[in-house]
Write a protein that binds this DNA or RNA. Structure first.
Lengths: 197, 197
DNA sequence: GCCTATAAGTCAGTATTATTGACATATTTC
DNA sequence: GAAATATGTCAATAATACTGACTTATAGGC
C-alpha cells in the first residue's frame, strides 16, 4: 500500500527549491495564521508534473533541463544576446557555454553576429529548434487546456493573476511586460531596433 | 559592467525542468490552438520565486534543497519510514543518505525504530527541526497571504483548484488526500496504526 | 589611430545533487 | 533455519552549477 502510493515514475530531483532571491526572512509567523501547507504542497506537486512534460519530451533528444531553459527563452525572445540570456537564466557564462554549445552543435540554435554590435552574438532558434520548442510548448499547453476544460475557461484569468501575484513584486512588471505583449506571437526581439542597422 | 550585469543574486539552477513522469507526448499541437506561452512562463517565474523563499532561509543553516525536501515531508508526514520517504522524493537511498545523515547529525530529524517492524526507521522532526520547518512554511505562507491580500480571499479556492488540476490525474487523489485532511494540523502519521503496537 | 571598456569564449578546479551497482547487517516471515 | 525485506554503505559516475583567471574581438572615447 505504501509502495503503490508513489510508484509512478522515476523523477529527477529539483523541485521544492530554487534560486535564492532577495527575499527577506522576517521571522516566524506572519500574524498567527496557520501555514498554508495545502498550497505549499500543491505548488510542489503541480510544478513537478508540469515540468515533467517538457522534461520527458526533451529527454528523447538527449537534452536536459539546462537545454530546455535555453531553448525556451531563445524561442520567446529571439535575437537576444548572450548577456541577456545570462540575465534571464541567472547563471554564469561558463555554465551556459556547455549547454549552448550543444544546442548549436545539434543545430537547434543559431548565433549571428550582432547587427549593431558585432561583439554580441544574437541567438535564434533554427527551424529544427523551433519545431522542438513548439512541441514542448504544445505539450505543456495541453496540460493547461485540460485544466481549463475541467475548471472552465473563466479559471484561466484567475490562474494568470494568481501566478503573476506569486512573482516577486520587483520582477513582476518585467515579467508582465514580457508575457503580455508576446503571449501569442512571441517574436518581438527580431523586430526591435537592435537587429536593424 | 558585465560584472554588475549578473550580480543580482547567486541563483541555483533547477527550475523550468523536473522529474519525468508518465507523460505521453501525443504529437505537435493539441488542436490548432496557440501554445499558452504566458502561463508557461508564469509557472516558471512564480515557482522560481516561491521556492527561493525557502531556499534563502535554509541557506543560513547550511542546508540545501535536498535537506529542505526531507524536512518538509518529514514534517508533513511524521513517522514515515525511509522507504516511504524515498517513494515520495523519488530518489535512491544512496542519495537520501547523505542528506538525512546531515539532518540527523544536526539534530533536525530523529529516527526511531519502527514500532511494528524494528527493521524500519521512522522519521520525526526534533523540536529544532520543527521550528525550522515551521519557519520555512511560514515564510512561504507569507507569500500566499500577500497574494490573496492582493487578489482577495476568494482567489484562494481558485488557486487551490487550479494547482490541483495541474497535477497528473493519477496522482491527484493521493495528493488531495494528503493535503486536504492534514492541511492544518499536519500530524496524522503519528496517529496511524503503524506507530502503535 | 590608440587605449580602454565591453562581449564573449575558454581553461581549470570544485560543489551539490543526483545516478548505478554491489554488498553488508538486522529483522521479519514462512 | 532460510528467504525476503528494510536499511546502510562503498565506489564510481553524471548533470548542473560555481569561482577565478585569462584570451580574443570589437566598440567607443580621446
Amino acid at each position: 500500500m505504501d509502495k503503490a502510493l508513489f510508484k509512478q515514475a522515476d523523477l529527477k530531483q529539483t523541485e521544492l527549491r530554487a534560486p535564492r532571491m532577495g527575499t527577506t526572512y522576517a521571522g516566524p509567523p506572519a500574524g498567527g495564521a496557520e501555514p498554508s501547507f495545502d498550497l505549499i504542497e500543491l505548488m510542489f506537486f503541480a510544478y513537478r508534473d508540469f515540468v515533467a512534460d517538457a522534461d520527458h519530451l526533451l529527454e528523447n533528444f538527449g537534452l536536459g533541463r539546462a537545454h530546455h531553459r535555453v531553448l525556451h527563452f531563445v524561442n520567446r525572445r529571439p535575437g537576444l544576446s548572450i548577456a541577456e540570456l545570462l540575465e534571464i537564466l541567472k547563471i554564469t557564462k561558463q555554465s551556459l557555454n556547455r549547454v549552448l554549445k550543444e544546442l548549436l552543435d545539434k543545430d537547434y540554435v543559431e548565433a549571428r553576429h550582432g547587427a549593431r554590435d558585432r561583439r554580441q552574438r544574437q541567438l535564434f532558434l533554427t527551424a529544427r529548434g523551433r519545431v522542438l520548442a513548439l512541441a514542448v510548448a504544445n505539450l505543456q499547453s495541453k496540460r493547461f487546456a485540460e485544466v481549463f476544460a475541467e475548471l472552465g475557461d473563466g479559471a484561466r484569468a484567475g490562474a494568470t493573476d494568481f501566478l503573476l501575484a506569486m512573482i516577486n513584486a520587483n520582477e513582476r512588471d518585467k515579467v508582465a511586460a514580457l508575457i503580455g505583449p508576446r503571449a501569442v506571437t512571441g517574436f518581438p526581439h527580431v523586430l526591435d531596433e537592435r537587429t536593424r542597422r
